[in-house]
């Protein structure tokens, strides 16, 4: 089996170590540019999801959407966002130079990455940002255990 012979100058562990280091570097490089795996759901609105010890946060950019035009439902572990963005028509008597902002409706299902307490959901709208705060159930929260002196 010639492919498994180790010559006197080849240290398999050093080789492995080099490979490992190279892998680490590639991994770090990839993550430095893309801090995390990007999802492309391709459905409006796009969301960012984050967490801290007690909560899960779902954020969406909804500029120009009235808070009363947003409907949020939590079903099993799916968050359903529905709503409408209205761009009021300007008077007939105007000429458009640019028209990039769109009006329309949206329906989006967001699969939550972890379990949440369905009774503890809060949503706020601030400066065109929708922020949904979900609470992790007690049993999955990390617990700190104090070591008692016997």
């Amino acid at each position: 089996m010639p492919w498994l012979t180790f010559g006197p100058r080849v240290d398999p562990f050093r080789e492995l170590e080099q490979v490992r280091r190279e892998m680490d570097r590639l991994w770090e490089d990839a993550f430095r540019r893309e801090p995390l795996l990007r999802w492309r759901a391709g459905v409006y609105p796009l969301v960012n999801i984050s967490e801290d010890t007690d909560h899960l946060y779902v954020r969406a950019e909804l500029p120009g959407v009235n808070p009363e035009d947003i409907q949020i439902t939590l079903e099993n572990n799916n968050l359903i966002l529905r709503g409408e963005r209205k761009v009021p028509e300007a008077d007939k008597d105007v000429d458009y130079h640019r028209r990039e902002r769109e009006a329309g409706s949206f329906r989006r299902v967001v699969r939550l990455p972890g379990r949440v307490d369905p009774n503890k959901v809060a949503a706020t709208c601030q400066n065109g940002m929708l922020i949904i705060t979900l609470t992790k159930p007690e049993e999955i929260k990390p617990k700190q255990i104090t070591v008692k002196i016997a």
């Binding site: 796009l46 960012n48 967490e51 801290d52 946060y57």
Partner: peptide
Amino acid sequence: ISPPRGEQEQLLVQEYET
């Protein structure tokens, strides 16, 4: 923009950039 998330928060999913 205001800070896009709290200091203690960790991003899990990023679909849009800030």
